[in-house]
Structure formats: structure tokens, C-alpha cells
Simulated assay, not measured.
Amino acid sequence: MTSQMAILSRARKTLLKTLNHHNNPFKASISTFTFLSQEAQLAHPRLPPPSPTPLPPNPASGSPLYNYFLWTDLYFIYIRMLQTGKESMPDDESYELVVGMLFLTDQIDAALRYVDLTLKSGYMLSMRVFAECVRSCVNKGRLAALVSIIERCKTMDQNKALSPSWNMCIFIADIAMQEDNSKLAFYALEFMARWIARGENARGPVLLSVDEGLVVSALGTAGRTYSCTLLDASWAILRRSLRQKKAPQPESYLAKIYVDAALGNLQRAFSTLHEFETAYRNSPKEAEEDIFSPFTSLHPLVMASSKNGFETLHTVG
């Protein structure tokens, strides 16, 4: 412990000397970080002897991004210093700060490598880092990397309770469905189901509900990607959101019938159709003719049923 504190102290002093040596123009903003306290040597710097690890000159004078690159470089030095001792390895806060700086500077590959190191070291992934993962992976079209991070968190005791905010869950779901990423859409719905359960079990229950339009979109993604897992999750969270107070909208029933038919599960498709007819048997005649039309709304089921002629119909008889 003593050697680790000594290393931390030397790292901190070196960083401060480096800042003072170059009369850093971003000194005021850097001093607001919690890692550096407001000390007199920052406010009234004295030129120290040359640092063994000086910062390179600013190649893009006036660019605000240099502030971020500066801090990234400083913390790489900090990490290397920590690793000079066998018993002193970077802690979770060190990883979090480096990852945050890398994401802010759009160095996504390097950031993802440090996220990987964070998880391999057995540390908990903070919600701040996860939010940055979501933002960067979405902006860079790296949804597969985001799925991989979520899957790894689910296998770790430290991270299996990962729970993004409700609004972030909706954002992830929207992006996943736009890109027809059934795995990511499923995980978004799974996160939302946790929120619904948590709200129901709280003192003074908070009854959260998933928008039915979002569920219809999820069912569409399930149909296009042939994902039975996403189909079941979508229908389950819709049922839980409605809390048996009303039936799903016709669009939801029709979307589920379409997915069942696309997956070749005609028995489930006709079972859903029967439930649909029961729920809307008292609809006005014109509306009933429209929503139960074999030529429009139920056309996918008709086509699936006639795929192999009477043999197919026999399986659902």
C-alpha cells in the first residue's frame, strides 16, 4: 500500500510539473477536474526543471480538442507509472478516466480496448462509461461492439445488474430497430423490463409502460431478422405494460401474426388470430372487414398457409 501511494504521489507531481513547464493555456479548465485539486502551484506556477516526460508541442494551436488529447497523454503517463510496481495496477477510476477521455476524442478503438481491460480486471463498468459506449458506438456504427460489451457485463457478477436509464433504454431500442439489430433490441427491452419490475415492486409503485408503437417496431425487426427471441420479448413486455387493462392494438396483433407466419409457426399465428378476433369481435363492421381482410392485413398469414398447400393447413387443423 505504501509503495502504491508513493507511485501515485510521484505520478501526480510529475503531471503538475509537466503542466507548469509548458505554461499550459488550458490550465484553468484542467484544474477543475477532481483529480487535480486547486493548489497554489497551479495559480502561481514557478518554472520547474525540465520534466523527464514533457508534453509535445501543440500541433493544432487554438483547437479545443487539444485539451482532451493533452489529458489523454497525461493519463497514459499516469497509467505507465502505476504499472512500474508489481503490486500496483490501475484501479477502476483510472480506467474510467482514460476511457472517458478516449471516447471524448473519438478514439473509439482505443477506448473499447480499455473497456475490455476494465472488464478483464474484474471492475464494474460505471454508467457514465456505459453511456459513452452507447453514444460512441451509435455514432460510429459499432453496434456489434456495444452488443458484445452488454453480453460480457451480463456474465459478470460485478456488472450483471447493469441498468441504463429508462430514456437510454428507449434510445438504444430505437437505434437497434432502425438498424434491424435484433440482439441489441432484445437487450434494450430486457433493460426496460427490469425498470418495469423495479417500479412495480417499489413502495408507492411506479407503473412504467413501453409505448406500443415501439413494440410494433420491435415486432417488425423480429420478423425481418427471424428472431423468435425478440418476438417473445416484445409480446411479453407489451402484455406487462398493458397490465390486462386493455387489449393490444390491432397493429400489434397483426405484427405478431406476421412474425409467427414468417417464422413458420402457423399454430401460434392462428392462435394469435383467434385472440385478435375475440378482442375485436364487437368492432364496427367496416373496421372488422378491414382488419380481418385476407387480402390486406392477413395476407402474410394466407401466403404462409398456402406455401405447401393442404399439407400446411393440415398442421394447424
Rank of each mutant, 00 (worst) to 15 (best):
T272R: 04
T296V: 09
D290I: 06
D91F: 11
P294I: 04
P164C: 15
M5Q: 09
A193F: 00
T118Q: 08
I172A: 02
V129I: 14
K140W: 03
K256D: 15
L47V: 07
C169P: 02
Q38H: 07
L125T: 00
D116A: 15
R224K: 04
I291P: 00
P300E: 14
T296R: 11
E288S: 08
L266G: 01
S51W: 00
S136A: 04
L112K: 02
T84G: 12
T14Q: 15
M127A: 12
L19A: 02
A193E: 13
L42Y: 12
L112R: 03
N159E: 00
G204H: 12
V147F: 12
S252A: 09
A269Y: 11
F295Y: 07
R194I: 02
R80T: 08
A255P: 05
F295W: 08
Y78V: 05
I175Q: 11
L313C: 14
H21R: 06
L70T: 04
K140P: 03
S305W: 00
V316E: 13
Q267P: 07
G62A: 05
L8Q: 07
T155P: 10
V259E: 01
A287P: 03
T72W: 08
I196F: 02
V316K: 02
R240I: 00
P284V: 05
A222D: 13
L298Q: 03
I30Q: 05
D106N: 08
M156K: 08
W166F: 12
S283P: 07
C133M: 06
Y226S: 11
D174A: 07
N67L: 13
A279Q: 05
A161V: 04
A188R: 04
L143N: 06
S163Y: 14
T272K: 06
A287V: 05
S88I: 13
V206M: 13
W195M: 10
L15K: 02
E179N: 14
D290K: 06
K120A: 02
Q158K: 15
I175V: 12
K285M: 05
A6L: 12
L273H: 12
I77E: 10
K160S: 01
G141K: 10
K13C: 02
W195Y: 13
Q41K: 07
A6V: 06
R12Y: 11
M156P: 08
M303W: 04
F171D: 07
P56I: 09
M127D: 02
N23I: 01
F186T: 01
V98K: 01
F26S: 02
T225R: 15
T84Q: 14
R142A: 00
C153W: 10
K17F: 02
S293K: 10
I7K: 00
E93V: 15
K86Y: 06
E39N: 08
W235F: 10
Y68R: 13
N167K: 07
N67Y: 14
I237R: 02
T34I: 11
T221Y: 03
L36W: 09
S241A: 10
S31N: 09
C153G: 01
S297E: 06
R113P: 05
Q244R: 09
L55R: 07
T118D: 01
R203Q: 15
L230M: 11
V147Q: 10
F191G: 01
D232M: 11
S182R: 08
R224C: 04
A261I: 15
S61A: 12
